[in-house]
Write a protein that binds this DNA or RNA. Structure first.
Lengths: 100, 100
DNA sequence: TTAACAGATGCAAATATATGAATATTTAGC
DNA sequence: GCTAAATATTCATATATTTGCATCTGTTAA
């Protein structure tokens, strides 16, 4: 049985873990490249951002695990894309707040 | 002299650090209590959330340091409040995404 | 000035996160 | 089958974050 406080604290944990997934400069950069429904492979992202392949894969795994991204395998490639395009607005909203 | 990439990477760092400030269950709970322009003291928050005074003060310090909150001292009390009320929308947006 | 309250800060221990080298897995083509 | 390409995973190290106790600072009122 789950009481009100547990449910509420679960929701907080879930929101925090999703936000935490996004709250990293590399991962924000990834989101920006995926805005507008774009789909990119691990290699494309790793080359676009100039970071190691394994580091890229780790970051993508975190974003997927926390429900920010989805992925689809097509042959040798795995395409990653935004689960909710709304999420990229969070970053834009933030940048409006940080740039004043 | 600053080149384009440095500026861009600075913006990413700034957005990430603001998001990181928010991305914690206790700090999201604090934001929710401050929605709509409310101002609360450290003691009020510490009692509302049932967490230690010093822990509360640390969390508030992080939120203030990263530009999420402002504070005003009035006598013995320090009132904390949202710098941009827009920021509380981020959490709502997130919760819409996490609850489907 | 002292007492009492409100808040901030220093510190340490526990825990979590980030990164990349090395290795494993998956898939396509031969 | 074998090889190469793309991605994922394991592991270790470095670094950052969280928490709370103890303490310090600032403020009010007697």
């Amino acid at each position: 049985m789950m009481n009100i406080q547990e449910i509420d604290s679960d929701k907080l944990e879930m929101a925090a873990s999703m936000l935490k997934a996004i709250a990293h400069p590399v991962r924000i950069a990834i989101l920006k490249h995926l805005e507008g429904g774009k789909k990119l492979t691990v290699t494309e992202i790793h080359e676009l951002l100039g970071i190691e392949q394994s580091t890229t894969s780790h970051h993508l795994g975190i974003l997927k695990d926390k429900g920010v991204l989805c992925s689809r395998r097509e042959g040798k490639n795995t395409y990653y894309y935004l689960k909710h395009d709304i999420l990229s607005q969070i970053v834009d909203c933030l940048q409006r707040c940080t740039c004043e």
